[in-house]
């Protein structure tokens, strides 16, 4: 009586069939090769444990990706809960009568008239790469997904289990740190 499922699992070919695809999916989000490889392996192992839940309605790859997505959320939660360790230094007074005003020494200083022209310079690539690397990981992930991979706000929020207001606070802090970093290492030099 039982109908034959549309799709079946073939774990003995997983590495060959899906590893690179999952690897690329992961690295876009975590930005670190070794870590991405570990997450891919964990995904396969979790998938095996859950293989009885596979109904054969979606393709093998789609099913693996859904497990991978949960792994990425878990990873993001883990780094997100490491409080204090990797906070961005804020540019504003946090309380008192000056709350929300620029802290004088962290306020922007002029980048000169040639800032626009300096954008084309190829060496600027390594400056911005370095500045992005300095971002705490939980900020870097969100910043890159939004700015470089051009994901919709809603998509990132769903993927990482955060709210839009969390996302904008993260973007706000990341951009403040990047501006400051580019100022110190490039534009004000």
């Amino acid at each position: 009586m039982s109908e034959k499922p549309l799709h079946t699992l073939d774990p003995n070919n997983w590495a060959q069939s899906h590893a690179d695809y999952l690897f690329n999916y992961t690295i876009t989000r975590v930005n670190n090769e070794d870590l991405a490889k570990d997450i891919v392996q964990e995904t396969f192992l979790s998938a095996l444990k859950a293989k009885d839940n596979f109904k054969g309605l979606a393709s093998e790859r789609t099913w693996l990706i859904s497990i991978l997505k949960r792994k990425i959320i878990d990873y993001y939660r883990k780094i997100n809960s490491k409080k204090g360790k990797a906070e961005v230094r804020m540019d504003f007074y946090e309380d008192g009568e000056n709350k929300g005003k620029w802290i004088e020494e962290r306020a922007p200083s002029s980048w000169g008239n040639e800032a626009e022209m300096k954008i084309e310079n190829a060496e600027l690539k390594s400056a911005i790469d370095t500045c992005v690397d300095f971002l705490p990981e939980k900020y870097r992930m969100v910043f890159l997904l939004k700015t470089v991979e051009n994901y919709e706000t809603e998509e990132i929020c769903n993927e990482l289990g955060i709210t839009p207001s969390n996302l904008w606070v993260i973007i706000h802090r990341a951009r403040h740190q990047l501006r400051k970093c580019l100022e110190e290492n490039w534009f004000a030099k």
Partner: peptide
């Protein structure tokens, strides 16, 4: 400067 940061990201990342 923020507009410049955006241009830098578009061009170099």
């Amino acid at each position: 400067q923020n507009a410049i940061v955006t241009k830098v990201c578009d061009k170099h990342l």
